[in-house]
C-alpha cells in the first residue's frame, strides 16, 4: 500500500490511484505507424527506476518515477 503524493490532493493511499502504463508505452496520436506499432510491443522493463503514468481519484494524471525493486517513489509530476 504505497503512499503516493497527488500533486493536487497531497499524499494519499495507493487505493485511491490507478496505475495506467509506463511512459515508454505511450503511443502518440501523430506517431508514424512504424513507431506506433513498435511501441505496442517493446518495453524497457528496467531493473530499477522507471517512469510510470498513474491517475488519482480526483482526476489528476501524474508521472511517477518509481524503483521497481524497492517501490520507493523518486519523484512525482503532474501530467
Amino acid at each position: 500500500m504505497l503512499l503516493i503524493p497527488c500533486p493536487h490532493c497531497g499524499p494519499r493511499n495507493q487505493e485511491e490511484f490507478a496505475y495506467e502504463r509506463t511512459l515508454d508505452s505511450v503511443v502518440r496520436l501523430n506517431d508514424a505507424p512504424e513507431l506506433a506499432i513498435a511501441t505496442l510491443y517493446a518495453r524497457a522493463n528496467p531493473r530499477g527506476q522507471e517512469h510510470e503514468i498513474w491517475s488519482h481519484t480526483c482526476g489528476q494524471w501524474l508521472r511517477l518515477t518509481r524503483d521497481r525493486i524497492s517501490h520507493a517513489i523518486h519523484s512525482v509530476e503532474p501530467l
Partner: peptide, 12 residues
C-alpha cells in the same frame, strides 16, 4: 471515463 481523460491530459 479513464480513456477520455487519458487522451485529453496525456495525449493532447
Amino acid at each position: 471515463a479513464r480513456h477520455l481523460t487519458y487522451v485529453a491530459d496525456v495525449l493532447l
